[in-house]
Amino acid sequence: MTDILNPTEEVLAEAPPPTRGGGAVRYVLTKIGGALLSFAMVIVLGFLLFRALPGDPVQTMTRGRPATPEMMARLEHKLGLDLPLWQQFWKYLGGLLHGDMGDSYFYNVPVLQKIGERLWPTVLLVGVSTVIAVALGLWLGTRSGWRRGSRFDRVSTGVALTLWSTPTFWLGMLLMAATTGLFPTAGIVYTDTPDDFFSQALDIAHHMVLPTITLVAVTYAQYQLVMRSSLIEEAGADYLTTARAKGLRDDVVRRRHAVPNALLPTVTLVFLHLGMVIAGAISVETVFSWPGLGLLTYDALRVGDLPLLQGTFVVLAGAVIFMNTLADFLYRVLDPRVRAS
């Protein structure tokens, strides 16, 4: 205690600042652990939903079709429904570990194979739309939030709210009706398109126009509104006064100081809302017969194909969990405060 009288550093007064490094590995492991736990919950939920709820799967699957008691019993046996619940769960779990989610009742192929075929169209559609929607939403949100109450703000917020209030499938149907003949309204590619890469790509792009516009229109509003309000939250922050006092131009203050901070809550929400984008994708794919996972989900529920529905549920939920784990890592890169803790 001899150095007390000569306090060169403020060791006396304040706790030492937190040390950096070393936390990164722990952070990543925690997040991965959390994601695995979530995925385990999805798997359990996927089982409980389709097996343990008070509905009768066999009746659901044969709804609207004539079925004799023998057929129903055969189906029950095929699905393993005549076993006790816990044995069913072991079978389901064991199958999952081997990459087997059972066979599609309707397509008569393994569920995972069917999902694999339909995965890429959805990734393409959702990926392109999300990139466009995020860019558009952030740009509009930044402009309207920084000049709150301006005509630009009022108009763009009004448009965003209106589009957000519109059901996705209806907007798709309207677009379809309004642009009759200009764009293809079903499928991903015409069967008579030449096989070379360029023609194929062009045709797919042509098919993608309407679904993409629909999906962007119903999702960008979220991003715009979140960005707008987090920028408004930041608008009163003291560090912006500091930046202005330094003599920075208004747009530099916005770009260099306000936006990076306002982006943090926005990034979180962009990823949390991915589930909503999936919902949009199901509607859009249904309306435009886009052969992705959304349409597959719709077909599965239309014909009561429970194994297929179970498969799409697990895969879609797993994908969203995966994306959110990525978001956690991205967030850590963006916010030094998360890095420290």
Binding site: S38, V42, L49, F50, L53, T60, L272, L274, G275, M276, I278, A279, I282, T297, L301, G304, L306, L309, Q310, T312, F313, L316, A317, V320, I321, N324
Partner: peptide, 13 residues
Amino acid sequence: VLPSLVLAIALST
């Protein structure tokens, strides 16, 4: 995080 429409579809199916 779970896509709620997918869950709702599953429930109502």
